[in-house]
Amino acid sequence: LHYGTLLGSRACVHMAAAAWGSGFLNAVLHTANTFSIPLCQGNALDQFFCEIPQILKLSCSGSDYLREAGLLILSSFLSFGCFVFIVLSYVEIFRAVLRIPSEQGRHKAFSTCLPHLAVVSLFVTTALFAHLKPPSISSPSLDLVVAVLYSVVPPSVNPLIYSMRNQELKKALRTLIQWTLHHQQ
């Protein structure tokens, strides 16, 4: 993969600016909207951090839902744009990797990008489940578990997934699994 040739510093700056700018715009709009919501059912949430759907449950006004729905639609477009960009990037990466003539070169390239794909997939699937699950299966305890899944688990396993290329770590993990299985019997 010829990162230096294909992805110059100008392209990196543009991509970083787009990611930071869209993230900042999204955060500012949601934060401003959240602080403008009148709360009439107290200010205690059954969560360990303030998620917008939980805050809306404390709202006095029905119009807050409409305003937030508009922001969620905007957020969905931003998220979908990021998702499409990631998918297209991986299609191009896989096309480039498959053109590598040696099997060892292809293996090395895949072992570099597959951990990133695993982390992104873990985050996207848990976040989608958290925000798209039907209200009929929603409960405070399930909402809390799902929030932990998408906000804590991906960053926690991120170092483990990325370090799986390290042979010493693989050996230590194999030893730990064998020791655990041996002592459970």
Results as ranks from 00 to 15, higher is better:
Ala16Thr: 15
Ser36Gln: 12
Val84Leu: 15
Ile52Trp: 08
Lys57Trp: 03
Leu66Ser: 06
Gly8Glu: 07
Ser63Glu: 09
Gly4Cys: 09
Phe49Pro: 02
Gly62Asn: 07
Leu6Thr: 10
Leu88Trp: 05
Arg67Glu: 04
Leu29Met: 14
Gly8Ile: 08
Leu1Gly: 15
Phe35Asn: 13
Cys50Leu: 13
Ile73Pro: 02
Val13Leu: 15
Gly42Ala: 01
Thr34Trp: 01
Leu72Pro: 00
Ser63Ala: 07
Gly62Met: 06
Cys82Thr: 06
Leu25Val: 13
Leu56Trp: 00
Gly21Met: 01
Leu1Ala: 14
Leu39Ile: 00
Pro38Phe: 04
Val13Asn: 09
Phe80Cys: 08
Ser9Cys: 09
Ala69Cys: 03
Cys12Glu: 12
Asn26Cys: 12
Leu7Trp: 09
Ala17His: 08
Gln41Pro: 00
Ile73Ala: 11
His30Gly: 00
Ala18Trp: 12
Ser76Tyr: 12
Leu72His: 03
Gly42Thr: 02
Val13Arg: 15
Gly21Trp: 06
Cys82Val: 07
Pro38Cys: 07
Phe35Ile: 13
Ala11Asp: 11
Leu88Asn: 06
Cys50Ala: 14
Ser36Met: 14
Gly42Lys: 01
Asp64Tyr: 03
Lys57Leu: 12
His2Thr: 10
Ala69Gly: 02
Leu58Asn: 02
Ile55Cys: 03
Ala11Leu: 15
Ser36Cys: 10
Ile52Ala: 05
Lys57Gly: 10
Cys40His: 04
Ala19Val: 11
Leu6Asn: 12
Phe77His: 06
Gly23Tyr: 01
Tyr3Leu: 14
Ala69Tyr: 04
Thr34Asp: 06
Tyr65His: 08
Ile37Pro: 00
Ile55Arg: 06
Leu45Ser: 01
Ile73Tyr: 06
Gly21Ala: 01
Cys60Tyr: 06
Ala44Ile: 10
Arg67Pro: 00
Ser9Ile: 14
Cys12Phe: 12
Phe85His: 07
Gly4Trp: 10
Val28Asp: 08
Ala11Lys: 15
Gly62Leu: 07
Leu74Lys: 04
Phe35Met: 15
Phe48Asn: 08
Leu88Val: 08
Ala69Glu: 02
Ser63Leu: 08
Arg67Asp: 01
Tyr65Gln: 05
Gly23Pro: 01
Gly62Trp: 03
Ile37His: 00
Ala16Ile: 13
Ile52His: 08
Ile86Arg: 07
Ala16Gln: 12
Gly70Ser: 05
Ala44Tyr: 04
Ser22His: 05
Ala16Arg: 13
Gly21Thr: 02
Leu71Cys: 03
Ile52Ser: 06
Ala16Leu: 15
Gln54Tyr: 05
Thr31Lys: 10
Thr34Val: 10
Ser22Tyr: 04
Ala32Val: 14
Gln47Met: 15
Pro38Ile: 02
Leu71Lys: 01
Ala32Asp: 08
Leu1Arg: 10
Trp20Asn: 06
Leu88Gln: 11
Arg10Met: 11
Ser79Glu: 09
Leu1Phe: 14
Asp46Asn: 12
Ser89His: 10
Trp20Val: 15
Ile52Cys: 03
Pro38Trp: 02
Ala32Asn: 11
His30Leu: 14
Leu72Asp: 02
Cys12Lys: 15
Ala16Met: 15
Leu39Lys: 01
Ala69Leu: 12
Thr31Ser: 09
Leu1Cys: 12
Gly70Glu: 02
Val87Trp: 13
His30Phe: 13
Ile37Gly: 00
Thr31Asp: 09
Leu78Gly: 06
Cys60Ser: 11
Tyr65Phe: 10
Ala69Ile: 02
Gly42Asn: 03
His2Trp: 10
Phe77Gln: 03
Leu39Ser: 00
